[in-house]
């Protein structure tokens, strides 16, 4: 019988959302292929996580070792190379996260296993797999096939696969001895560092006005800030604005920034890359202003304005100012 395994991702004592997303997709794939769905959990003192995974899989392979307490690509790879070589799962699923991006490519290369990264779709077709990936920052989708026969490895994009409730599986926790020996590592985990606390907490705002790459220059930021102020909103931004140091990291909405759920979210000059959308799709009402009618942001927005932000934003600001005065 075929085996599909999900490498469970967890951090600081909690399973991450991507793990449930992979398990849900993995379940559907396992059912369509008549395969077993198993999970691999590496860590230390993570029995409670193994218990949580149990009803979602046939087996949880659990390796506990103090050298696995914090994620490290080297210890992860050593443990996984051993386990995957022994079990030979037909398909291994890993999250396309900061963690998965760090170990999946080298693990696949070491195992000489074909890898498709950042998949937003994956289906089993007979003895092979086909996936859907995005190109050019999400402007184009591509269907991609594996050239050789399995086993295969794929990393799945966070937020791309829904989590649906399913009947529990008769999960079993299978503790395995750690294959790690007392050897020196070339890479060592030191600590986590939290982001600096922002002056304004963008997660608490009812109205957020977020600005993106379309603002073109730091000197144009006040235009949007004044607009935000005029409607009692808080200024936020997408990643490129922080990369260019035009606004501080605390203003950033998206995967590597904050997740926000305001009543109204106004996206100005933001194209709508998935990393950004992941942080704002819970907003009540989304208004997007972008000059490109094909910008992906219009797929998530409730209202769209196809216009040059430098022309339309001042007009909206003045109109609302006028209305609020009267």
């Amino acid at each position: 019988m075929k085996e599909i395994v999900v490498i469970a991702e967890h951090r600081r004592g909690e399973l991450r959302d991507i793990t449930w997303e992979m398990l849900c997709k993995g379940r559907q794939l396992a059912e369509s292929a008549g395969a077993n769905l198993n999970a691999i959990l590496l860590g230390k003192g993570v029995n409670h996580l193994a218990e949580a995974l149990k009803p979602k899989v046939n087996k949880v392979f659990l390796i506990e070792d103090e050298r696995l307490e914090s994620y490290n690509s080297e210890t992860y790879e050593r443990a996984l190379v051993r386990l995957i070589t022994e079990r030979k799962p037909w398909l291994t699923l890993i999250g396309h996260t900061a963690t998965g991006m760090d170990f999946a490519p080298s693990l696949a290369a070491r195992l000489k296993m074909p890898l498709a990264t950042d998949c937003i779709g994956i289906e089993i077709e007979g003895e092979t797999c086909s996936v859907i990936r995005q190109l050019y920052g999400g402007k184009i989708n591509a269907s991609v096939s594996f050239v050789k026969q399995g086993p295969y490895m794929a990393t799945l994009r966070p937020g791309a696969f829904p989590v649906l409730e399913k009947d529990p599986l008769p999960g079993e926790i299978v503790p395995l001895p750690s294959p790690l020996a007392a050897e020196t590592l070339a890479r060592r985990f030191l600590q986590y560092v939290e982001a600096a606390v922002a002056e304004v907490d963008i997660t608490q705002a009812d109205i957020l006005v977020a600005v993106g790459r379309g603002i073109k220059d730091a000197e144009n930021i006040p235009l949007v800030k004044e607009f935000a102020d005029s409607i009692g909103g808080v200024l936020a931004c997408s990643r490129p604005v922080v990369d260019k140091k035009w606004l501080p990291k605390g203003c950033q909405v998206g995967t590597s920034g904050k997740t926000v759920r305001p009543k109204v979210y106004i996206a100005i000059g933001i194209s709508g890359a998935f990393q950004h959308v992941a942080g704002m799709k819970g907003a009540g009402t989304v208004i997007a202003i972008n000059k490109d009618p094909k910008a992906p942001i219009f797929n998530v927005a409730h209202y769209g304005i196809v216009a040059d932000l430098f022309k339309i934003v001042p007009v909206i600001k003045d109109k609302i100012k006028g209305l609020r005065k009267s």
Binding site: A98, R188, F189, L190, Y192, V193, E194, A195, K249, S256
Partner: peptide, 17 residues
């Protein structure tokens, strides 16, 4: 000593030879 960018503003500090 390098910082890796994780999700949600968190960073991981690792030492690497």
């Amino acid at each position: 000593k390098v910082h890796r960018e994780l999700e949600g503003g968190l960073e991981e500090v690792v030492e690497i030879d």
